Computed example of a mutant assay.
Amino acid sequence: MSNYQEAISFIKESFGTNDFIPLHVPHFGGNEKKYLADTIDTTFVSSVGAYVDQFEAMMASLTTTKKAVAVVNGTAGIQIALKLSGVKSGDEVLTQALTFVATANAIAYNNAHPVFIDVDLDTMGLSPKAVEAFLTEFGELRSDGCYNKKSGRRIAACVPMHTFGFPVHLDKLLEVCAQWNIPVIEDAAESLGSEYKGRQTGSFGQSGVFSFNGNKIVTCGGGGAIVTNDIKLGEKGKYLTTTAKIPHPYEYVHDELGYNYRMPNLNAALACAQLEQLDAFLQNKRVLAAEYKTFFESKGIHFRTETPDTKANYWLMCVELEDKKERDLFLKYTNESAVMTRPIWQLMFRLPMYRDCQKDSQEHALFLEERIVNIPSSVR
Rank of each mutant, 00 (worst) to 15 (best):
F55T: 05
I11N: 03
Y51W: 11
T310K: 09
A102K: 13
Y4I: 15
E132S: 13
K12A: 09
A338N: 15
R371M: 10
T242I: 00
N284F: 04
C357W: 10
F138G: 00
A268D: 06
D91E: 05
E6N: 13
A268N: 12
N284G: 05
E13H: 13
G49L: 10
L366A: 04
T305D: 03
A108R: 10
T241P: 01
E175S: 14
N229C: 05
R350F: 00
F212H: 11
G300N: 12
K172Y: 11
F210L: 11
M353N: 06
M263C: 06
L329S: 05
F210R: 12
D53Y: 03
P376V: 08
Q283C: 05
H113E: 13
N313V: 06
D38V: 02
C272F: 13
Y4T: 14
Y333V: 14
Y259S: 03
I8H: 03
K172E: 14
Q5D: 09
Q283V: 12
S298K: 13
A290Q: 10
A57S: 15
F281K: 14
S194K: 05
T95M: 14
P183V: 06
G125D: 04
V69K: 07
Q200P: 00
T95D: 04
S211Y: 11
S47L: 07
K88P: 00
I185D: 06
L282H: 11
L316S: 01
F330G: 01
A365W: 06
F138I: 04
I21G: 02
T241H: 03
A102Q: 15
I226V: 10
N105A: 07
V319W: 01
N374P: 00
T39E: 01
P167D: 04
V52A: 08
N148L: 02
F55V: 07
K232T: 06
F10T: 02
Y4A: 05
I155A: 06
Q277R: 15
G49Q: 05
M340E: 12
E137L: 09
Q283D: 09
L368M: 13
P167M: 13
I246Q: 03
T219P: 02
E56A: 03
C357A: 14
D120I: 06
H24K: 10
N31C: 02
F303H: 01
C146I: 01
E369R: 13
S2M: 12
V287C: 00
N110G: 01
A97I: 02
D41M: 14
T241I: 02
D187L: 05
V115N: 06
N148Y: 07
Q358V: 09
Q362C: 00
T103R: 00
G224N: 12
D144Y: 06
G29S: 14
D53H: 07
C357D: 11
H24I: 12
K129W: 07
